[in-house]
């Protein structure tokens, strides 16, 4: 399984790369006209925060690299097991898929499949759970569209 050590080292490297990239973008923040000379430049605070975040990420990465832990998690894994990892990651995929289904095909297709897809992602086989989740979806739809008069596209 993926260890906290490896995952955190990769994560902190990504954070540092992101900080450098955002820092370079911040170099281009220029105020125009009379406001240009007012107070501190717009890039000051983001770059300060990016530098701070990058230093923290380097410290965390260094702790994992040289001590093998940061906060008593030596030897721990990110997921408890393959089944847990599959369920969590599939649920994330369902959330992303539902967002795009809503965006491209409308609200109702998304609302109809969000429950069953989630249950499948979690590995639920009980039929009555599918029925209850669909009923709750219907109830949510009625509350928002009839009681709160929301128009979903």
């Amino acid at each position: 399984m993926l260890t906290q050590r490896l995952a955190n080292i990769v994560f902190t490297i990504l954070i540092v790369i992101a900080c450098v990239w955002f820092g370079m973008i911040a170099q281009g923040f220029e105020a125009s006209g009379l406001l240009a000379s007012s107070g501190l430049p717009s890039k000051f605070f983001p770059q300060l925060l990016l530098a701070f975040t990058a230093v923290c990420a380097l410290i965390v990465g260094g702790l994992y690299l040289f001590k093998g832990q940061a906060g008593n998690d030596a030897g721990e894994t990110v997921f408890a097991g393959f089944a847990e990892a599959r369920r969590g990651l599939l649920m994330m995929a369902v959330a992303v898929a539902c967002y795009f289904i809503w965006k491209h095909y409308g609200f109702i297709p998304m609302a109809v499949i969000i429950g069953p897809l989630s249950l499948m992602a979690m590995g639920v086989r009980s039929v009555w759970q599918y029925v209850i989740v669909l009923a709750l979806t219907g109830l949510t739809y009625v509350v928002f569209t009839r009681l709160l008069n929301i128009q979903f596209t």
């Binding site: 220029e30 105020a31 406001l35 240009a36 107070g39 890039k43 965390v60 940061a70 906060g71």
Partner: peptide, 30 residues
């Protein structure tokens, strides 16, 4: 349990608020 991890998250949270127009001079940021 890790101070550096907490600081990293705090810094990231604050950084994300710098997105948008600069309130003081209207500069577009991220």
């Amino acid at each position: 349990q890790s101070l550096s991890k907490g600081l990293l998250m705090g810094g990231l949270g604050i950084f994300l608020t710098t997105w948008g127009l600069d309130e003081l001079n209207g500069t577009e940021r991220y």
